[in-house]
Design a protein around this nucleic acid. Sequence first.
DNA 1: CGTTGGCACTCACACCGCGAGAGTGCTAAC
DNA 2: GTTAGCACTCTCGCGGTGTGAGTGCCAACG
Lengths: 368, 368
Amino acid sequence: MELDERKKEILRAAIDSYVDTAEPVGSKFLASGGSLRVSAATIRSEMAELESLGLLEQPHTSAGRVPTPAGYRVYVNELMREHKLSLADMETVNRAMRKRISELDKLLDDTGRLVSNLTSYPAYAAASPRGGATISRYDFIGVDNNTFIALVMLGGETVKNKLIHSTAPVSPAFLTRLSALFNASFTGIAEDAMTATLISATERAAGDSAGIVAVVAGFSIEMLMEAKQMQPRLSGALSLFDYPEYRDIGKARRVIRYLSDERNPAKLPAPARGGDVKITIGPENLAEELRDSSVVVASCDAGADIRVMVGVVGPTRMDYSKVTSRLEYIARALGWLLSQGGEGNLLLGGPDEGQMDVLEGDEDFERN
Amino acid sequence: MELDERKKEILRAAIDSYVDTAEPVGSKFLASGGSLRVSAATIRSEMAELESLGLLEQPHTSAGRVPTPAGYRVYVNELMREHKLSLADMETVNRAMRKRISELDKLLDDTGRLVSNLTSYPAYAAASPRGGATISRYDFIGVDNNTFIALVMLGGETVKNKLIHSTAPVSPAFLTRLSALFNASFTGIAEDAMTATLISATERAAGDSAGIVAVVAGFSIEMLMEAKQMQPRLSGALSLFDYPEYRDIGKARRVIRYLSDERNPAKLPAPARGGDVKITIGPENLAEELRDSSVVVASCDAGADIRVMVGVVGPTRMDYSKVTSRLEYIARALGWLLSQGGEGNLLLGGPDEGQMDVLEGDEDFERN
DNA sequence: CGTTGGCACTCACACCGCGAGAGTGCTAAC
DNA sequence: GTTAGCACTCTCGCGGTGTGAGTGCCAACG
């Protein structure tokens, strides 16, 4: 299917207009637009052909035309003009990313919110699960007579801590023994093996300390389980109601509910390469609930075994160009941020002005 | 204002019915209900009197009657029958609370979700800010040549950690120096004094270590700022759309947006005593956005300087009885859970079957 | 005097038919 | 190949109408 130049022009103009207004677009309107230098009648016959090609359709005779999913597909693949980020937008992203972030969860949450704000569509961010992760190290630090902190490190990346109040006094010697026990028996094993280890370890431990062993081990198991599942969070769900196609509450609900289920966003088709963006239009979605919505997902490089995805949902008439460019920019910034901290979620500072300039490239920027 | 018994009956029946169906209720319908043993005409004249008392009103002549906020107020104060929790509901709460929770944030988040599920209205949970909190202690633990963990303890309750990768090698001696510096200069001071201290400390530190000092201090400031503001989170916002009074998307949006703003839920009127419940009906709300919604808030005892609130929002025609009882139960369970862990956010286990029985009391339970 | 049945009255709401307007397809002329 | 004109189609918004639910009032009853 190779469209001639004028058909492309017309399709692009029609989609741009429909994306903007959500109103079917007619030949007369396009003719008056200016960029096409032909009459409405000509446009009419061209549109009729575009319709027979399945790229446009009429909601009813005597209405204007509306792009079909196939039409959007052509638009996205061939016609879409690159949307330049405004300096202001980039500044927003850079500022958000420059904030020192201490936990991956929170970073993803913030990113989702940022994307949603910048695109005015609902957005989510998620990290891929690290199934094979094990605990690499334990530390125990005494606080006072009855209190100590257990510090658990997961696979060189994540550290979590738990403040533990004990009924029995905790001596430095006890903490040393505890440390020896855990570092010897509970490191490097998977979550399912944890329980068995726990039982044998508890048997060896005497009286009071058995309870403490159970608490620390329980905390470890919880951590491993958490690491196994990614927990995407939807931001800006409410903005869906801004779009007339979701005026019907039921429809919006279905979409939001689908994406609120933590298992689902993981299933959305994501690009393999970091920095790339994948667009899934309407019926291309496998999930029934998204059949008349579109999804744009970017993934980003963030070290060897961890994959991070950022996605946006909206009507099929989404502003693909704007969303794509912003998502790309954010995914690149996020990837940079994540790889900067080693393989970790804990970062020394963030991108600063100078370094972000590299990301921005040297194109000339246009506002909006 | 003392209503005679029959007026009370009628008001109660009218409100119960309207809560159920959201349809104006007419005299004929009430007469056919059975529990009133008088004719429709009698009910009509009684309802006319209730209307002149300002407890009922007609949306228009020749429609049934609808309770006014004042009517709900009377209902809540005098008429409401106590709603017994089903065993199944209690089991749900107990199970949720029995889960080992490691962070206060997460616990509140889970509680909000639980309340929303149990009441089918949007819910939130929030902890009151601890303004005067300071950092009480720092620990630094070496991981490998370039990496160490900074452990920061906030006022005896909260511990956060940060994994730090340094470009220069970190020796045990360096960590000892770091520890001495931070524990001497950065403990016990408020967030606003932090910056000044940081500058003088950085001046004293040499070269590479200055960067590290800045990172750790930045992390500390972030922590203190986080502790100063509570961060309530809205759960189940979507369920608002189940109610016909929010069919108008704009109205629902306003309510959800208001409650999504982290500053706002803190402003809602909360009961002073833990375990108590406060009901604010429609125009009783100070916030413009909630003028035709109702809010039910419970607070719970959770140690000396920390106050936790759990709240529910819904239409003025909310099922006050059901919501009140469930909220009460959950707030008590939460209070128990929080006070159990000392003053802390880190808990040894959770309530178990036996202990929760105390909470349940010894009333006989009815299902639903 | 409280209670009841009857009756006229009043609205909201759903339904119908109509005209206006927008947009098309087709055809004939350029 | 392009354009102007024209007849045609279909949606949408508008005003009118009728139905039904529910009321208020009144007269009669115990």
